[in-house]
Design a protein around this nucleic acid. Structure first.
Lengths: 163, 163
DNA sequence: CTATTTGCAAACGATTTGCAAAACA
DNA sequence: TGTTTTGCAAATCGTTTGCAAATAG
């Protein structure tokens, strides 16, 4: 069916995929050890243009390369170092995506409510809104969490009419 | 200081607060029984202009008026009937807000990362974006989840500099 | 009276944590 | 070698569910 191992596919937004050594370099700069589990996790993330759940990451690790707890711990570590960004699609599982380059290119997703197909949405028009809110309510360091949900073309065709 | 029992306060956006009988009427129309727990829960929600967690709702119920499981079940029921709307601030707990009138007035929130102060944001500029996305990617029934986070004025003053 | 709802306790899934052993630097 | 990290198992947290008793209509 689809080529993505977990049923995800869709927009190949940015497959820039910095080489592994560039990622591990960031670990080093953060005084973090370059362990096998970490390299394995980074490699899994490098293979995907979409955010992955812990379960998806762990399953794709060569035959349980490491314990789930280790994945959880490392996602925190990597998030802290700015190597990955956490997303929340409201389904109870956190999702993680590799951050490219220096800055996290702020973006959102369009997720199929039915098959979980994920499209990356690059544009974000909310910086101006954030400024307005900051001014209007005196808040500082404003950011936002935004995701879109809908039914993808395939699922519309399949479930035509019924749910 | 604030009158809200759980430390929340801020924008008293819409305290329209339809009378209880108007709410229970909706239950009746949905073929749902008007039980004590349900009335109690609706009354708690009626007292707040901001979304509440299950725990907050349960704690405010007169001396454990009902079991937490009952609150969970009822929030599903009420959500299904369109009486409440579910929000997700990404902190692991669902939040529920009473829906006013017939339609849920679509809105978002500005949440203080430090003290959880919640402001209601009425404007939403994303209908147009949803249409664009629908057209561009062939998705149907698009909606979105959007919340803003920041540091409120008080917390800025308090934690000035340090975190 | 009959279907719905509740309370209670057990089950669940995602995530976290304590601790001793294993692995990096 | 000294510190970080891992594996494993147990603990937590929010939420769901099975089932018999209580209750609304």
């Amino acid at each position: 069916m689809s080529k993505a191992p977990c049923g995800h596919s869709g927009h190949a937004r940015r497959l820039i995929q910095q080489p592994l050594h560039e990622l591990t370099e960031k670990l080093r700069l953060g005084d973090r050890k370059i362990t096998a589990p970490r390299q394995a996790i980074l490699n899994v993330l490098r293979r995907h243009a979409h955010p992955l759940t812990i379960k998806e990451i762990h399953q794709e690790l060569d035959k349980s390369d490491c314990d789930p707890a280790t994945v959880y711990r490392n996602m925190h570590t990597l998030e802290g170092l700015g190597l990955v960004k956490r997303f929340d699609f409201g389904d109870g599982s956190a999702r993680f995506e590799l951050v490219e380059g220096e800055e996290s290119v702020h973006h959102h997703h369009l997720v199929c409510r039915n098959c979980s197909l994920i499209l990356e949405i690059d544009d974000c028009w909310l910086a101006a809104v954030e400024k307005e809110l900051a001014k209007a309510h005196g808040f500082a360091e404003i950011n936002h969490r935004l995701e879109f949900f809908g039914v993808c073309p395939k699922c519309q065709a399949a479930g035509a009419g019924a749910s």
